[in-house]
Write a protein that binds this DNA or RNA. Structure first.
Length: 142
DNA sequence: GCCAACGTTGGC
DNA sequence: GCCAACGTTGGC
């Protein structure tokens, strides 16, 4: 029997490496994905299930997918939120990508047309369609 | 440094 | 409820 294929990520999250980088995620292992203060992004965080895979993207500096994380804990109150209205999840580093997938490469790939990373450039948490995720994985593997 | 996208706020 | 002003994000 063939080895079970790796889970295809269903989501993408962005972080400015100045604030929280992939290296920090790896060093910390499991880390709360807190501080999201946008309703649309919150809705996506709430929909995440334990074990879901997530692309980790560096915004601003790098502008590239650098790794894959996994949802280690589903939605719970964001400890950085004093109002109690916002939630966060825990993310766990799984593996770095072999080849960082740059925004330029994503834009240049016609099969990724319509991806929300480009269409909704300010959104920091977003779903990735299975077809798009497969292409991103392919690009990440080189 | 500039600009586009877009969410939030506040006056009416 | 509308909309102008303003702030933030993120790319270039």
């Amino acid at each position: 029997m063939a080895a079970r294929p790796k889970k295809t990520p269903a989501w993408l999250v962005k972080s400015e490496p100045d604030a929280f980088s992939w290296d920090q995620q790896v060093a910390n292992g499991v880390e709360p994905w807190s501080g999201v203060r946008n309703h649309q992004a919150q809705a996506f965080l709430k929909a995440m299930k334990k074990g879901d895979r997530v692309f980790f993207y560096h915004s601003n500096i790098g502008k590239e997918i650098v790794g894959i994380v996994e949802v280690a804990r589903e939605a719970y109150p964001d400890p950085t939120d004093e109002t109690g209205r916002w939630i966060c999840v825990d993310m766990k580093a799984i593996e770095p990508v072999k080849h960082a997938v740059t925004l330029a490469a994503i834009k240049a790939e016609p099969r990724l047309e319509g991806i929300s990373l480009i269409r909704q450039s300010r959104l920091s948490v977003m779903p990735i369609a299975p077809g798009h995720a497969a292409i991103l994985l392919e690009m990440a593997r080189g």
